[in-house]
Protein backbone atom coordinates (compact mmCIF):
# COMPACT_ATOMS: atom_id res chain seq x y z
CA UNK A 1 0.00 0.00 0.00
CA UNK A 2 2.05 2.91 -1.24
CA UNK A 3 1.07 6.14 -2.92
CA UNK A 4 -1.55 6.15 -5.61
CA UNK A 5 -0.19 5.26 -9.02
CA UNK A 6 -0.12 8.24 -11.40
CA UNK A 7 -2.39 6.49 -13.90
CA UNK A 8 -5.27 6.76 -11.44
CA UNK A 9 -5.06 10.48 -10.87
CA UNK A 10 -7.57 12.16 -13.16
CA UNK A 11 -6.65 14.47 -16.01
CA UNK A 12 -7.08 17.94 -14.53
CA UNK A 13 -9.04 19.50 -17.39
CA UNK A 14 -11.88 17.00 -17.33
CA UNK A 15 -12.87 17.46 -13.69
CA UNK A 16 -14.11 20.58 -11.93
CA UNK A 17 -11.65 22.08 -9.42
CA UNK A 18 -11.78 20.52 -5.95
CA UNK A 19 -12.52 23.89 -4.37
CA UNK A 20 -16.05 25.09 -5.06
CA UNK A 21 -16.29 28.90 -5.17
CA UNK A 22 -20.11 28.91 -5.76
CA UNK A 23 -20.68 27.03 -2.49
CA UNK A 24 -18.41 29.43 -0.61
CA UNK A 25 -20.25 32.43 -2.07
CA UNK A 26 -23.66 30.87 -1.35
CA UNK A 27 -22.62 30.10 2.22
CA UNK A 28 -21.38 33.64 2.80
CA UNK A 29 -24.58 35.00 1.26
CA UNK A 30 -26.64 32.95 3.72
CA UNK A 31 -24.51 34.30 6.57
CA UNK A 32 -25.13 37.85 5.30
CA UNK A 33 -28.89 37.22 5.20
CA UNK A 34 -28.79 35.82 8.72
CA UNK A 35 -26.86 38.87 9.91
CA UNK A 36 -29.30 41.36 8.42
CA UNK A 37 -32.62 39.57 9.02
CA UNK A 38 -31.65 37.62 12.15
CA UNK A 39 -32.51 40.43 14.56
CA UNK A 40 -35.90 41.15 12.98
CA UNK A 41 -37.60 37.78 12.43
CA UNK A 42 -39.10 35.64 15.19
CA UNK A 43 -36.67 33.35 17.00
CA UNK A 44 -38.64 30.36 15.76
CA UNK A 45 -37.27 30.81 12.23
CA UNK A 46 -33.71 31.00 13.54
CA UNK A 47 -34.21 27.72 15.43
CA UNK A 48 -35.78 26.12 12.37
CA UNK A 49 -32.85 27.19 10.17
CA UNK A 50 -30.39 25.95 12.80
CA UNK A 51 -31.96 22.47 12.91
CA UNK A 52 -31.93 22.15 9.13
CA UNK A 53 -28.29 23.29 8.89
CA UNK A 54 -27.36 20.86 11.65
CA UNK A 55 -28.88 18.10 9.54
CA UNK A 56 -26.93 19.34 6.51
CA UNK A 57 -23.71 18.85 8.50
CA UNK A 58 -24.79 15.43 9.80
CA UNK A 59 -25.95 14.01 6.49
CA UNK A 60 -22.96 15.44 4.60
CA UNK A 61 -20.65 13.90 7.20
CA UNK A 62 -22.48 10.60 6.93
CA UNK A 63 -22.28 10.66 3.16
CA UNK A 64 -18.50 11.12 3.10
CA UNK A 65 -18.23 7.58 4.42
CA UNK A 66 -21.59 6.10 3.45
CA UNK A 67 -22.10 7.56 -0.01
CA UNK A 68 -18.53 7.80 -1.29
CA UNK A 69 -17.03 4.66 0.28
CA UNK A 70 -20.20 2.60 0.79
CA UNK A 71 -19.62 2.00 4.51
CA UNK A 72 -22.73 2.50 6.65
CA UNK A 73 -22.31 4.38 9.91
CA UNK A 74 -25.28 3.66 12.18
CA UNK A 75 -23.78 5.47 15.16
CA UNK A 76 -24.49 9.08 14.15
CA UNK A 77 -26.40 9.75 17.37
CA UNK A 78 -23.37 8.49 19.31
CA UNK A 79 -20.90 10.75 17.50
CA UNK A 80 -23.31 13.68 17.79
CA UNK A 81 -23.63 13.06 21.53
CA UNK A 82 -19.84 12.91 21.87
CA UNK A 83 -19.78 16.43 20.43
CA UNK A 84 -22.51 17.57 22.84
CA UNK A 85 -20.77 16.16 25.86
CA UNK A 86 -17.36 17.47 24.84
CA UNK A 87 -18.86 20.96 25.02
CA UNK A 88 -20.52 20.22 28.36
CA UNK A 89 -17.31 18.78 29.85
CA UNK A 90 -15.30 21.78 28.62
CA UNK A 91 -17.93 24.19 29.90
CA UNK A 92 -17.71 22.60 33.37
CA UNK A 93 -13.92 23.03 33.36
CA UNK A 94 -13.55 26.56 31.99
CA UNK A 95 -15.28 29.19 29.89
CA UNK A 96 -14.22 27.84 26.51
CA UNK A 97 -15.34 29.83 23.45
CA UNK A 98 -17.70 27.90 21.17
CA UNK A 99 -15.40 27.60 18.10
CA UNK A 100 -12.77 26.00 20.31
CA UNK A 101 -15.32 23.58 21.75
CA UNK A 102 -16.39 22.66 18.22
CA UNK A 103 -12.78 21.92 17.26
CA UNK A 104 -12.30 19.82 20.41
CA UNK A 105 -15.54 17.93 19.68
CA UNK A 106 -14.33 17.28 16.14
CA UNK A 107 -11.04 15.88 17.41
CA UNK A 108 -12.65 13.63 20.04
CA UNK A 109 -15.39 12.29 17.75
CA UNK A 110 -12.91 11.91 14.89
CA UNK A 111 -10.58 9.86 17.08
CA UNK A 112 -13.48 7.63 18.16
CA UNK A 113 -14.34 7.13 14.49
CA UNK A 114 -10.71 6.37 13.70
CA UNK A 115 -10.47 3.85 16.54
CA UNK A 116 -13.67 2.04 15.57
CA UNK A 117 -12.57 2.02 11.95
CA UNK A 118 -9.10 0.78 12.78
CA UNK A 119 -10.50 -2.20 14.68
CA UNK A 120 -13.19 -3.20 12.19
CA UNK A 121 -12.48 -1.82 8.72
CA UNK A 122 -10.03 -4.51 7.74
CA UNK A 123 -12.94 -6.95 7.77
CA UNK A 124 -16.14 -6.83 5.73
CA UNK A 125 -18.02 -3.55 5.81
CA UNK A 126 -20.98 -4.93 7.75
CA UNK A 127 -18.78 -5.43 10.81
CA UNK A 128 -18.06 -1.72 10.86
CA UNK A 129 -21.79 -0.98 10.65
CA UNK A 130 -22.61 -3.36 13.48
CA UNK A 131 -19.77 -1.94 15.57
CA UNK A 132 -21.12 1.60 15.13
CA UNK A 133 -24.59 0.44 16.21
CA UNK A 134 -23.12 -1.09 19.35
CA UNK A 135 -20.83 1.92 19.83
CA UNK A 136 -23.83 4.24 20.24
CA UNK A 137 -25.18 1.99 23.03
CA UNK A 138 -21.78 1.89 24.76
CA UNK A 139 -21.25 5.64 24.55
CA UNK A 140 -24.68 6.13 26.08
CA UNK A 141 -23.73 3.73 28.89
CA UNK A 142 -20.56 5.74 29.49
CA UNK A 143 -22.40 9.06 29.63
CA UNK A 144 -25.15 7.70 31.91
CA UNK A 145 -22.45 6.56 34.32
CA UNK A 146 -20.38 9.76 34.12
CA UNK A 147 -21.77 12.05 36.79
CA UNK A 148 -19.38 14.93 35.95
CA UNK A 149 -21.40 15.71 32.81
CA UNK A 150 -24.72 15.12 34.54
CA UNK A 151 -25.10 11.33 34.15
CA UNK A 152 -28.65 10.16 33.58
CA UNK A 153 -30.06 13.29 35.25
CA UNK A 154 -28.76 15.50 32.45
CA UNK A 155 -27.00 18.85 32.57
CA UNK A 156 -28.16 22.45 32.33
CA UNK A 157 -26.09 24.76 30.17
CA UNK A 158 -26.31 28.53 30.50
CA UNK A 159 -26.49 30.37 27.20
CA UNK A 160 -23.81 33.10 27.34
CA UNK A 161 -24.73 36.73 26.61
CA UNK A 162 -24.89 37.88 23.01
CA UNK A 163 -21.47 38.51 21.42
CA UNK A 164 -20.71 41.93 19.85
CA UNK A 165 -21.98 41.95 16.21
CA UNK A 166 -24.86 39.57 16.93
CA UNK A 167 -28.25 40.62 18.26
CA UNK A 168 -28.74 37.39 20.20
CA UNK A 169 -26.82 34.24 21.09
CA UNK A 170 -29.23 32.17 18.96
CA UNK A 171 -28.26 34.26 15.96
CA UNK A 172 -24.59 33.59 16.77
CA UNK A 173 -25.31 29.83 16.98
CA UNK A 174 -27.07 29.96 13.63
CA UNK A 175 -24.14 31.71 11.94
CA UNK A 176 -21.69 29.23 13.49
CA UNK A 177 -23.78 26.31 12.21
CA UNK A 178 -23.98 27.90 8.75
CA UNK A 179 -20.21 28.19 8.59
CA UNK A 180 -19.91 24.59 9.78
CA UNK A 181 -22.35 23.40 7.11
CA UNK A 182 -20.39 25.35 4.49
CA UNK A 183 -17.11 23.79 5.62
CA UNK A 184 -18.66 20.30 5.59
CA UNK A 185 -20.06 20.72 2.09
CA UNK A 186 -16.78 22.20 0.81
CA UNK A 187 -14.89 19.25 2.30
CA UNK A 188 -17.32 16.80 0.70
CA UNK A 189 -16.91 18.51 -2.68
CA UNK A 190 -13.13 18.53 -2.35
CA UNK A 191 -13.16 14.80 -1.57
CA UNK A 192 -15.61 14.01 -4.35
CA UNK A 193 -13.53 15.80 -7.00
CA UNK A 194 -10.07 14.69 -5.90
CA UNK A 195 -8.19 11.41 -6.10
CA UNK A 196 -9.49 10.62 -2.57
CA UNK A 197 -13.07 10.48 -3.83
CA UNK A 198 -12.04 8.40 -6.82
CA UNK A 199 -10.21 5.99 -4.52
CA UNK A 200 -13.25 5.77 -2.23
CA UNK A 201 -15.56 5.18 -5.20
CA UNK A 202 -13.23 2.43 -6.41
CA UNK A 203 -13.40 0.85 -2.95
CA UNK A 204 -17.19 1.10 -2.98
CA UNK A 205 -17.50 -0.57 -6.36
CA UNK A 206 -14.91 -3.31 -5.94
CA UNK A 207 -12.63 -3.22 -2.95
CA UNK A 208 -10.37 -6.05 -4.08
CA UNK A 209 -9.86 -4.58 -7.55
CA UNK A 210 -9.20 -1.15 -6.00
CA UNK A 211 -6.53 -2.53 -3.70
CA UNK A 212 -5.00 -4.44 -6.57
CA UNK A 213 -4.69 -1.29 -8.67
CA UNK A 214 -2.87 0.50 -5.90
CA UNK A 215 -5.60 2.36 -4.02
CA UNK A 216 -4.46 2.58 -0.37
CA UNK A 217 -7.79 1.12 0.80
CA UNK A 218 -7.45 1.02 4.55
CA UNK A 219 -5.88 4.48 4.77
CA UNK A 220 -8.58 6.09 2.62
CA UNK A 221 -11.34 4.34 4.56
CA UNK A 222 -9.82 5.48 7.85
CA UNK A 223 -9.61 9.04 6.54
CA UNK A 224 -13.29 8.94 5.55
CA UNK A 225 -14.30 7.37 8.87
CA UNK A 226 -12.39 10.02 10.83
CA UNK A 227 -13.86 12.89 8.82
CA UNK A 228 -17.34 11.40 9.11
CA UNK A 229 -17.05 11.11 12.89
CA UNK A 230 -15.45 14.55 13.21
CA UNK A 231 -18.24 16.35 11.32
CA UNK A 232 -20.92 14.55 13.33
CA UNK A 233 -19.17 15.51 16.56
CA UNK A 234 -18.79 19.12 15.43
CA UNK A 235 -22.50 19.24 14.55
CA UNK A 236 -23.25 18.20 18.13
CA UNK A 237 -20.90 20.66 19.86
CA UNK A 238 -23.17 23.77 19.74
CA UNK A 239 -26.27 21.70 20.58
CA UNK A 240 -26.07 22.13 24.41
CA UNK A 241 -26.24 25.92 23.98
CA UNK A 242 -29.09 25.42 21.55
CA UNK A 243 -31.42 23.47 23.85
CA UNK A 244 -29.77 24.53 27.19
CA UNK A 245 -30.65 21.22 28.89
CA UNK A 246 -29.02 17.99 27.70
CA UNK A 247 -29.74 14.51 29.00
CA UNK A 248 -28.71 11.20 27.38
CA UNK A 249 -32.02 10.62 25.54
CA UNK A 250 -31.89 14.05 23.92
CA UNK A 251 -28.22 13.82 22.92
CA UNK A 252 -28.49 10.20 21.68
CA UNK A 253 -31.76 11.02 19.99
CA UNK A 254 -33.62 8.62 17.73
CA UNK A 255 -34.36 11.48 15.35
CA UNK A 256 -30.67 12.04 14.67
CA UNK A 257 -29.93 8.34 14.30
CA UNK A 258 -32.53 7.85 11.61
CA UNK A 259 -32.32 11.22 9.88
CA UNK A 260 -28.57 11.04 9.30
CA UNK A 261 -29.18 7.90 7.23
CA UNK A 262 -32.57 8.76 5.75
CA UNK A 263 -31.54 12.21 4.48
CA UNK A 264 -28.58 11.17 2.28
CA UNK A 265 -30.39 8.07 1.03
CA UNK A 266 -33.55 9.97 0.17
CA UNK A 267 -31.61 12.85 -1.36
CA UNK A 268 -29.17 10.59 -3.19
CA UNK A 269 -25.75 9.40 -2.06
CA UNK A 270 -23.74 9.76 -5.25
CA UNK A 271 -23.16 13.54 -5.12
CA UNK A 272 -22.59 16.17 -2.45
CA UNK A 273 -25.88 17.88 -3.09
CA UNK A 274 -27.98 14.74 -2.52
CA UNK A 275 -27.48 14.85 1.28
CA UNK A 276 -27.95 18.64 1.32
CA UNK A 277 -31.20 18.32 -0.61
CA UNK A 278 -32.35 15.45 1.63
CA UNK A 279 -31.53 17.43 4.78
CA UNK A 280 -33.42 20.51 3.59
CA UNK A 281 -36.46 18.56 2.32
CA UNK A 282 -36.80 16.15 5.25
CA UNK A 283 -35.68 18.65 7.89
CA UNK A 284 -38.21 21.23 6.77
CA UNK A 285 -41.05 18.70 6.44
CA UNK A 286 -40.38 17.32 9.89
CA UNK A 287 -40.35 20.73 11.52
CA UNK A 288 -43.70 21.52 9.91
CA UNK A 289 -45.13 18.11 10.83
CA UNK A 290 -43.91 18.27 14.45
CA UNK A 291 -46.22 21.22 14.95
CA UNK A 292 -49.21 19.34 13.53
CA UNK A 293 -48.61 15.73 14.61
CA UNK A 294 -46.55 14.12 17.38
CA UNK A 295 -42.80 13.77 16.98
CA UNK A 296 -42.98 9.97 17.26
CA UNK A 297 -45.43 9.74 14.37
CA UNK A 298 -43.10 12.09 12.56
CA UNK A 299 -40.17 9.69 12.94
CA UNK A 300 -42.36 6.82 11.83
CA UNK A 301 -42.93 8.69 8.58
CA UNK A 302 -39.17 9.17 8.15
CA UNK A 303 -38.60 5.46 8.74
CA UNK A 304 -41.26 4.50 6.19
CA UNK A 305 -39.85 6.99 3.66
CA UNK A 306 -36.38 5.50 4.17
CA UNK A 307 -37.64 1.98 3.51
CA UNK A 308 -39.68 3.08 0.49
CA UNK A 309 -36.75 4.96 -1.03
CA UNK A 310 -34.13 2.22 -0.59
CA UNK A 311 -36.50 -0.37 -2.06
CA UNK A 312 -38.08 1.59 -4.91
CA UNK A 313 -35.72 4.50 -5.61
CA UNK A 314 -32.22 3.57 -4.43
CA UNK A 315 -30.65 6.53 -6.23
CA UNK A 316 -32.73 9.04 -4.28
CA UNK A 317 -34.33 12.28 -5.42
CA UNK A 318 -31.18 13.28 -7.33
CA UNK A 319 -31.23 9.99 -9.21
CA UNK A 320 -34.93 10.33 -10.02
CA UNK A 321 -34.55 13.85 -11.42
CA UNK A 322 -31.51 12.78 -13.43
CA UNK A 323 -33.36 9.83 -14.94
CA UNK A 324 -36.33 12.07 -15.69
CA UNK A 325 -34.20 14.70 -17.40
CA UNK A 326 -32.35 11.98 -19.27
CA UNK A 327 -35.60 10.64 -20.65
CA UNK A 328 -36.71 14.06 -21.86
CA UNK A 329 -33.42 14.87 -23.55
Amino acid sequence: MTALSPSLSPPARRLPKPFSWPVLVAGLAIVAVEMTLGAQVSEYYLLLAYIILQYVVLSTGWNILGGYAGYVNFGTAGFFAVGCYTTIALEKLAAVPLPLAILAAGVVAGLIGLGTGYLTLRLRGVFFSIATLALAVVLQTLIVNWSFVGGSRGAYVMRPDAIAPFASYVQYLLVVMTVLAMVAVLAAIAIERSWIGMGLAAIRDDELAAEASGVPGLRLKLLATTLCGAFMGMAGAPFPYFITYVDPPSAFSLAIAVNAIAMPLIGGTATWWGPVLGAVLLGFTQQVLTVTISSAANLLIVGILLVVFVTVAPTGVVGITRAWRGRRA
Binding site: V72, V126, G303, L306, V307, V310, T311
Partner: peptide
Amino acid sequence: LQGLAFFFGIMFI
Protein backbone atom coordinates in the same frame (compact mmCIF):
# COMPACT_ATOMS: atom_id res chain seq x y z
CA LEU B 1 -25.60 -0.31 1.61
CA GLN B 2 -29.26 -0.27 0.57
CA GLY B 3 -29.98 -3.56 2.32
CA LEU B 4 -28.46 -2.34 5.58
CA ALA B 5 -30.43 0.90 5.40
CA PHE B 6 -33.56 -1.15 4.65
CA PHE B 7 -33.20 -3.21 7.81
CA PHE B 8 -32.35 -0.08 9.78
CA GLY B 9 -35.59 1.47 8.54
CA ILE B 10 -37.58 -1.66 9.40
CA MET B 11 -36.03 -1.70 12.89
CA PHE B 12 -37.05 1.91 13.28
CA ILE B 13 -40.61 1.37 12.05
